[in-house]
Computed example of a mutant assay.
Amino acid sequence: PTLAAGVNTPSRRVVVRDWRRYDGEFGGMKPLDVLEVHQMCGRAGRPGLDPYGEAVLLAKDHDTRDELFDRYVYADPEPVQSKLAAEPALRTHLLATVASGFANSREGILEFLGNTLYASQTEESGRLEHVTDSVLDYLDVNGFVDREAGSITATNVGHTVSRLYLDPMSAAEILDGLRDAEEVTPLGCYHLVCRTPDMYQLYLKSGDREEYTELFYERETELLGVAPSEFDDVAFEDWLAALKTASMLEDWAREVDEDRIAERFGVGPGDIRGKVDTAERLLGAAEQ
Rank of each mutant, 00 (worst) to 15 (best):
P1Y: 09
T2V: 13
L3K: 06
G6H: 11
S11H: 05
S11N: 02
R13H: 09
R21G: 03
Y22V: 12
G24M: 06
F26V: 08
G27F: 09
G28Y: 10
P31G: 09
L35E: 12
V37G: 02
H38I: 01
M40I: 07
A44G: 07
G45F: 10
L49I: 12
P51W: 07
E54D: 07
E54H: 03
L58A: 07
R65I: 02
D66I: 13
E67F: 06
V73I: 10
Y74W: 06
V80G: 01
S82I: 02
A86Q: 13
A86S: 10
L90E: 13
T92A: 10
V98T: 02
S100R: 08
G101P: 06
F102N: 13
A103T: 04
R106A: 08
I109C: 09
L110Y: 04
L110D: 05
E111L: 07
L113S: 08
A119G: 04
V131S: 08
D133K: 08
S134V: 14
Y138W: 05
L139M: 08
D140P: 01
F144K: 01
E148G: 01
V157C: 02
T160V: 11
S162D: 13
L164E: 12
A171Q: 08
A172T: 09
I174P: 02
L178H: 04
A181Y: 03
A181N: 03
E182T: 12
L192D: 00
C194H: 00
C194I: 00
R195N: 09
Y200I: 14
Y203A: 15
S206Q: 13
R209Q: 02
R209M: 01
T213S: 15
Y217H: 11
E218D: 15
E222V: 04
L223C: 14
P228K: 07
S229D: 15
D233F: 13
V234A: 12
E237K: 14
D238R: 11
W239E: 04
L240N: 08
A242C: 10
E250S: 13
E250H: 09
E250V: 00
R254E: 15
E258V: 15
I261N: 04
A262P: 01
G266Q: 11
V267L: 11
V267T: 11
G268F: 12
G268Q: 15
P269Y: 10
D271T: 15
A279E: 00
